[in-house]
Amino acid sequence: MVEEDQESIFTIWLEKHSSSVIKVARAYTLTSEECQDLAQEILLQAWRSLPNFQGQASAPTWFYRVALHTAMNWHRKDSPRRARQHPLLEVQALVTGEKQGVEQVQQREMVEQLYHAIHQLPKTEAALVLLYLDELSYREIADVLGISESNVGVKLNRAKKALRALMTGDADGS
């Protein structure tokens, strides 16, 4: 792949799929600084992996696969290397106005509660939930995770049950 073509493709894909990067990074980190670092690491890995893209998966599937694999391996990497990295782009938090309605505050709190619950799931279940929340089909989720569609259904039902229990504080999940 010619470098100019790679840069063009990467820029286009980044515009279309940057929200996926942010969602994955947020789900796998606890602080905004870590989220920023992980998002940068995901983008770096996507850039490095792009020459190996062979079109066997769709761009969103490939981008998610890179993001999830990077996130799952991220904590094993050394922190000095992360400290030396220069941002590829500035990941910005959602900006909210000073005047927030009650509904906006409740919605933000619900999202925070959801991410807190996702952090408590095993990493493979967290990945599954993220893909589901991003409205990928079972086929697309299966492609990203390398499992069968029926296995996606089974694992997703278990993950939903676990999430429900975490969100409601119901220890037995019923």
Score class of each variant (00 low, 15 high):
Pro80Ile: 03
Gln56Ala: 08
Ser19Gln: 13
His116Leu: 11
Leu44Tyr: 15
Gln36Pro: 04
Gln36Val: 08
Leu114Arg: 03
Cys35Phe: 11
Glu33Phe: 09
Pro51Gln: 08
Ala67Val: 05
Ala39Arg: 02
Arg48Ser: 07
Asp78Ala: 03
Gln85Arg: 15
Arg82Ile: 06
Leu44His: 14
Trp47Asp: 05
Gln113Ile: 01
Gln56Val: 08
Glu125Gln: 09
Arg65Met: 02
Ala83Gln: 14
Glu112His: 01
Gln120Leu: 01
Leu130His: 00
Lys77Glu: 05
Leu43Glu: 07
Leu94Lys: 04
Arg65Val: 00
Gly97Tyr: 00
Ser19Asp: 14
His116Asp: 14
Glu103Asn: 04
Ile22Met: 11
Ala71Asn: 09
Tyr64Thr: 01
Ala27Trp: 05
Ser79Leu: 14
Glu112Lys: 01
Arg81Ile: 08
Ile22Leu: 12
Pro51Glu: 03
Leu50Gly: 05
Cys35Pro: 10
Phe63Cys: 15
Tyr64Ile: 00
Glu98Asp: 05
Pro60Phe: 02
Gly55Ile: 07
Ala71Glu: 04
Leu130Cys: 00
Leu128Pro: 00
Leu68Ser: 11
Ala127Tyr: 06
Ile118Gly: 11
Arg26Leu: 14
Leu88Ala: 02
Pro80Arg: 08
Glu98His: 03
Ile22Arg: 10
His86Lys: 09
Gly55Trp: 07
Val105Pro: 08
Ser18Val: 05
Ser18Ile: 06
Ser32Leu: 13
Ile22Cys: 07
Ala67Gln: 06
Tyr132Pro: 01
Ala83Tyr: 13
Gln120Tyr: 00
Gln106Glu: 13
Ser79Arg: 12
Gln36Ser: 11
Gln54Ile: 05
Leu121Asp: 14
Leu94Glu: 10
Met110Pro: 00
Leu43Val: 09
Asn52Ser: 05
Ala57Met: 14
Arg82Leu: 07
Val21Trp: 02
Leu121Ile: 11
Ala127Ile: 10
Arg48His: 08
Glu125Asn: 06
Met110Gly: 06
Ser49Trp: 01
Trp62Ala: 14
Leu131Lys: 10
Val24Pro: 04
Gln104Ser: 14
Ala71Met: 08
Ala93Gly: 05
Leu44Val: 15
Ala27Gly: 15
Lys77Gly: 03
Pro87Phe: 07
Ala59Leu: 04
Pro51Trp: 03
Arg81Cys: 07
Gln100Leu: 14
Ile118Ala: 12
Ser79Thr: 13
Glu109Trp: 08
His69Met: 12
Pro87His: 09
Ser58Asp: 12
Arg26Val: 12
Lys99Phe: 07
Thr61Leu: 08
His116Asn: 13
Gln113Gly: 03
Ser18Cys: 08
Leu43Gly: 06
His86Met: 06
Phe63Ser: 15
Trp74Phe: 10
Leu89Ala: 14
Gln113Glu: 07
Thr61Asp: 13
Thr29Phe: 05
Ala117Glu: 11
Tyr132Arg: 03
